[in-house]
């Protein structure tokens, strides 16, 4: 666990009615196991937020609470200004849940018609077909679709009620690169309509590209929140690569801000919290520094660090 992981609880004032969703010091236990440990966060209207966390971090429990499928043991969950179950019952929340195949014995058209009717006919079936790009599959049996097509049908169902809050659980998990691209283009259009979107993903580059903000959850707590860039920067890691004639691990490790040192022959890779100082100090080592490169760490690096899943590299 990263020592800087636990944040002071500075969210004393909650603007509940303005938010798409609010978790206020939420605790949820399963017997002895504490799945959520005073989890607090807010999702503003119109925001696109990525929910990140390793398996078992409490993400699924948080989602169940968000969708009104479970109640918190302590604290308060508010969705669209009221109880989650009430917002769901009013059709104001759409969800695309990660699942296997769609029900047998129904065509895609039947499912869309059902979705439309369940949400009080707020959209037409042709509208849903167009929205989720389902022209080719609309008359096919719903349980005989590819992974990407199945996900798009689910997406159409999630949008059937013109939701104000849309939740997507690993929406692109069964998609190839092109479908993934097409899918996020549609999501972007939905977000542009002012819909608040919360999504969970294992593809961190999707969070990086799509989210206004990311929430990193680990062991039932919020360990970091902010824009993808801020979360990356919070770990302040940059990678400095170069070649040195005679790299010395001890001396390199003592340079400013260095966290990790990797040496392969003459190739040196340093992870640092202060690239500017480090580069200056390297030239002062008295060795010719060649092929110098400085790159920002990926969101993935920050994520692994925050959730302590990096394999104890520190």
């Amino acid at each position: 666990m990263c020592p800087s992981g636990s944040e002071p609880d500075h969210r004393g004032m909650l603007h509940t009615s303005e938010n798409a969703a609010t978790f206020a010091s939420v605790v949820r236990r399963y017997g002895e196991v504490v799945a959520l440990d005073h989890l607090s966060f807010e999702i503003a209207r119109g925001e696109t937020v990525a929910l990140l966390g390793p398996n078992g971090a409490g993400k699924s429990t948080a989602v169940d609470l968000l969708l009104g499928l479970r109640a918190p043991d302590e604290g308060r969950v508010t969705v669209l200004g009221g109880q989650p179950a009430r917002a769901v019952a009013a059709g104001r929340v759409g969800g695309m849940l990660q699942t296997g195949s769609l029900p047998a014995g129904a065509r895609v058209r039947d499912l869309l018609a059902l979705g439309r009717a369940l949400y009080g006919a707020r959209r037409t079936v042709p509208e849903l077909v167009a929205l989720a790009d389902l022209d080719e599959v609309v008359d096919r049996p719903a349980d005989r679709l590819s992974g990407g097509q199945t996900q798009r049908v689910r997406f159409a169902l999630a949008l059937a009620g013109r939701p104000e809050l849309l939740f997507l659980d690993e929406p692109t998990v069964a998609m190839d690169v092109e479908s993934r691209h097409r899918f996020w283009a549609i999501v972007r259009a939905v977000a542009a309509d002012g819909v608040s979107i919360v999504f969970a993903t294992h593809y961190l580059e999707e969070a990086d590209r799509m989210a206004d903000r990311v929430l990193v959850i680990d062991r039932g707590r919020l360990v970091r929140e902010g824009t993808p860039a801020a979360v990356r920067a919070s770990q302040a890691t940059r990678t400095v690569r170069c070649t040195l004639p005679a790299p010395d691990r001890a001396r390199l490790a003592a340079l400013p801000g260095v966290r990790e040192v990797t040496i392969h022959g003459h190739d040196v890779t340093l992870t640092t919290t202060d690239a500017d100082e480090l580069v200056g100090a390297m030239y002062a080592l008295g060795q010719p520094v060649r092929d110098l490169q400085v790159s920002a760490a990926a969101l993935e690096d920050a994520f692994l660090r925050l959730t302590g899943a990096a394999g104890g590299g520190r």
């Binding site: 969708l67 499928l69 059709g91 969800g95 990660q98 296997g100 029900p103 369940l118």
Partner: peptide, 18 residues
């Protein structure tokens, strides 16, 4: 049981169907 395994029941639970 098949509908639960596939997640379809869960999907229905988050619609306005009472």
């Amino acid at each position: 049981p098949a509908e639960r395994a596939s997640g379809w029941l869960r999907q229905l639970r988050i619609t306005p169907l009472p």
